[in-house]
């Protein structure tokens, strides 16, 4: 199954880079756009474990806010200041899934992690990013069905 259209577009852009550092730079630019979820969405710290991405040592938290037309806005917090990849992933998920058909989120494949970050990503890091996808899928499914 293809990835959501905006992720396909991102991959097309990333594949343009031959040099891996240029690719990383593009992902860092994603991370630079990260904006933490507002307190009106998250509530006060500590955030509830039920919103935490499993297996993510960057301590990523996810909230799904219903919008009109049965669509959703995804909000993220990344508690580990060194969680650059988690921040990049959060921005990519928000920009590609928020306001879109919920099926895109519910059916998002773990393979997207390797497609974006490369097969050389460590197992630990990869699992954390897949955990973010798991949390997005789970919250979307719970609210959409």
């Amino acid at each position: 199954m293809p990835f959501p259209p905006k992720i396909e577009q991102l991959l097309e852009d990333l594949n343009f880079f031959d040099d891996r550092m240029e690719r990383y730079q593009a992902l860092i630019e994603c991370a630079d756009r990260f904006a933490e979820a507002p307190e009106s969405i998250t509530g006060a710290r500590p955030f509830p474990e039920s919103h935490r991405a499993p297996r993510c040592d960057s301590e990523a938290y996810i909230w799904t806010e219903p919008q009109s037309g049965g669509r959703f806005k995804y909000h993220f917090a990344v508690e580990n200041p060194q969680g650059i990849s988690a921040k990049a992933m959060a921005v990519i998920l928000d920009e590609s899934l928020s306001g879109e058909e919920p099926e895109l989120a519910m059916n998002l494949s773990h393979d997207v992690v390797f497609a974006i970050f490369g097969k050389e990503i460590s197992m630990g890091k990869g699992q954390g990013l897949m955990g973010m996808i798991d949390q997005v899928r789970m919250q979307t499914r719970r609210l959409a069905t």
Partner: peptide
């Protein structure tokens, strides 16, 4: 690092990266 994005996101001046996998 474990996280490949950490070094390019900001490192100590004049530091080079050696990645354990690649």
């Amino acid at each position: 690092n474990e996280d490949l994005l950490l070094y390019p996101s900001g490192h100590i001046q004049n530091a080079v990266q050696v990645d354990w996998t690649s």
